[in-house]
């Protein structure tokens, strides 16, 4: 029951945080610039957490996450701009199509392991991007002009649901099955875990929420272009997950928040920003390859939960 208390406590905390920010926005304390950073932060958290379930939990090395984000972005944009559907429906459409894309990519490629899987996912993401580049219906290389519909409420809801679903999944027998695949695939198989099934499930859930993030992203800027979703974007997402600590949900959230803020402050110095970024990446990998938190969660550091497993 103690765990349940922690859960509801964190939910309450999140809702209070949402309300405070909403009041500050309504009261004009947070201007458009800060709002936009907050929304960007939410998008990055969703991307990080949705990749965390694939790499951190299930141990499947996917480096093409931006591809699924692109699917979510484009299909939600088609829903609002071409079909005139309401934004929430569009988010759902984007997410579902992204999940289907994840399923389609996952079934053949998840037979591969390690580096080979990484390269295959990268290849799939590039193919997805090139398809959008070549379809005139969505504007080709020029991209698609989109109305700004995203706001703090949508972004926050997106993050909330993403974290909730993935944390609940992780703390169940299904999540443990996925973690056992990360730890030792052969042993997991021998213990009765249907490894292919769970890999595909994790991949599909991850793609679904990458789609949600993509949908909110698409409606936050005024235009989306295929170049946005190249492998540099995939690497960005990967960096959140790895810097935060592979296997740590709170770690990837913290890394996403931190790096969004750093990026925003350094946005006037793009070259310096990228040099610092890459240096930090190399140094962290050389001196602390498990990332910020390792597989631990921030809650375990405060002794909320009783143990150091993957708990939220």
């Amino acid at each position: 029951m103690k765990k349940s208390k922690v859960f509801w406590g964190l939910c309450l905390l999140a809702i209070i945080f949402y309300a405070v920010v909403q009041v500050m926005i309504s009261g004009g304390i947070l201007d458009m610039y800060y709002q936009s950073i907050l929304i960007q932060m939410c998008i990055n958290i969703m991307l990080a957490v949705s990749l965390h379930i694939i790499i951190g939990i299930t141990g499947q090395f996917s480096i093409g996450h931006a591809g699924f984000m692109a699917v979510g972005a484009y299909f939600s944009a088609i829903a609002t701009m071409k079909l005139g559907l309401p934004f929430p429906v569009a988010i759902l459409i984007g997410a579902i199509v992204a999940a289907l894309a994840g399923l389609l990519v996952g079934i053949p490629s998840l037979r591969l392991k390690g580096d080979y899987l990484a390269i295959a996912t990268l290849g799939f993401a590039e193919i997805i991007r090139i398809i959008f580049l070549n379809v005139d219906y969505v504007g080709g290389a020029a991209g698609m002009v989109i109305t700004n519909l995203s706001n703090w409420t949508y972004a926050f809801m997106g993050v909330f649901v993403t974290i909730l679903v993935i944390a609940n999944f992780t703390n169940s027998r299904h999540g443990r099955g996925c973690i056992s695949i990360r730890e030792d695939e052969i042993a997991a198989d021998a213990m009765g875990i249907n490894t292919t099934y769970y890999k595909v499930v994790a991949f599909t859930i991850g793609s679904f929420f990458a789609g949600v993030a993509g949908a909110i992203y698409a409606h936050n800027f005024f235009i989306i272009q295929p170049t946005t979703f190249g492998f540099l974007k995939s690497f960005d997402i990967l960096i959140y997950v790895v810097l935060g600590g592979l296997g740590s949900l709170s770690g990837s959230v913290i890394a996403a928040i931190f790096l969004t803020v750093v990026s925003a402050y350094l946005s006037g110095y793009p070259e310096e920003r990228m040099i610092i970024y890459s240096l930090v990446l190399i140094i962290v990998m050389l001196y602390r390859p498990t990332g910020l938190l390792g597989t631990k969660e921030i809650t375990s550091l405060f002794k909320f939960g009783k143990r150091g497993g993957s708990k939220v």
């Binding site: 690497f235 790895v242 070259e271 990998m285």
Partner: peptide, 26 residues
């Protein structure tokens, strides 16, 4: 990185790649 995990090695390689590109751009 000889004894590091594959993922740490790959991320480092990506980091080196970004570093070289951006240093040249700088």
């Amino acid at each position: 990185l000889r004894n590091a995990t594959r993922i740490a090695a790959l991320i480092t390689a990506i980091g080196v790649s970004l570093l070289i590109e951006n240093t040249v751009i700088y």
